[in-house]
Write a protein that binds this DNA or RNA. Sequence first.
DNA 1: CCCAACGTTGACGTTTACGTAAGTTTACAG
DNA 2: CTGTAAACTTACGTAAACGTCAACGTTGGG
Lengths: 144, 144
Amino acid sequence: MVEFYPSKKGGEPISRRYTITELTQMFDVTPRTLRHYEEVGLLQPERRGGQRLYNDRDRVRVQLILRGRRLGFSLAEIAEMLELYDTDPTEVAQLRDVLRRGDHRLREIEQQMEELQALREELLEMRDRLQQALNEKLKGSDPS
Amino acid sequence: MVEFYPSKKGGEPISRRYTITELTQMFDVTPRTLRHYEEVGLLQPERRGGQRLYNDRDRVRVQLILRGRRLGFSLAEIAEMLELYDTDPTEVAQLRDVLRRGDHRLREIEQQMEELQALREELLEMRDRLQQALNEKLKGSDPS
DNA sequence: CCCAACGTTGACGTTTACGTAAGTTTACAG
DNA sequence: CTGTAAACTTACGTAAACGTCAACGTTGGG
């Protein structure tokens, strides 16, 4: 397994458990959201009785999911990316496949970064123009 | 008006007109999409008879809208940003307001860039690990 | 003038990502 | 044991962003 999720190798057993409301408070989401993520297969918490019990791995996954959402990815895309982390490819062919898909995703992300960069620069230019205009308007009329 | 949209100052009148299908082919979207953008107020093409006629400004706006969508923004957010470009603030107060909203959006975008950067680096690390694993598996067994 | 291609307006359908309400269970504090 | 808070399931509702007909208007070439 990747060192992506908290583990106990070389440390204390960080293995906590979280109730659903604890997680909702951590991430400011509703229980429905977490149950939804489970419905679509993004989470599989244990159960004590009927109750869900999330561990640290689940918590990190929630964090990754929410970041993905903020970045505009669909839950399906996020599932794909989490699979990239998770699948422990046993065959060479499968390994190659995961690598290929990962590289593809990487290119998309770098494309997205470029577009975001462009948007940022346009907004910066606009800000400069507006600032200029503001200074003009204030020139002499209000030297406070 | 900002130099954001094509204008004729200092050049030939670049003012072309586009039919709806021309635009759909340019951007690989359906007519329904462009009409939808019009429904929600993002576009206001002229009409010849009943027919829509888009100009260069419209074309650029479509481009900006689609980029916004790829970056995960909602049409409402995109509308806000286009307003930032468009509004030619006459009053100082309004100017200040546009500046404030633009700066807010800028901070959000920079936040988004950081998260995207983090995601990228995680994917890169994963790729390295997988590449490493692949090399191990191929060591000796297939020196092609 | 005619018709095929293009365009238009409703208006209902679909997908995604949850919201919300109702009714039922489970888990402890007292 | 018993109430009360927390959690659960089921199921219908919703907002956004279009998709998808159906039925009708427009227009330019022959």
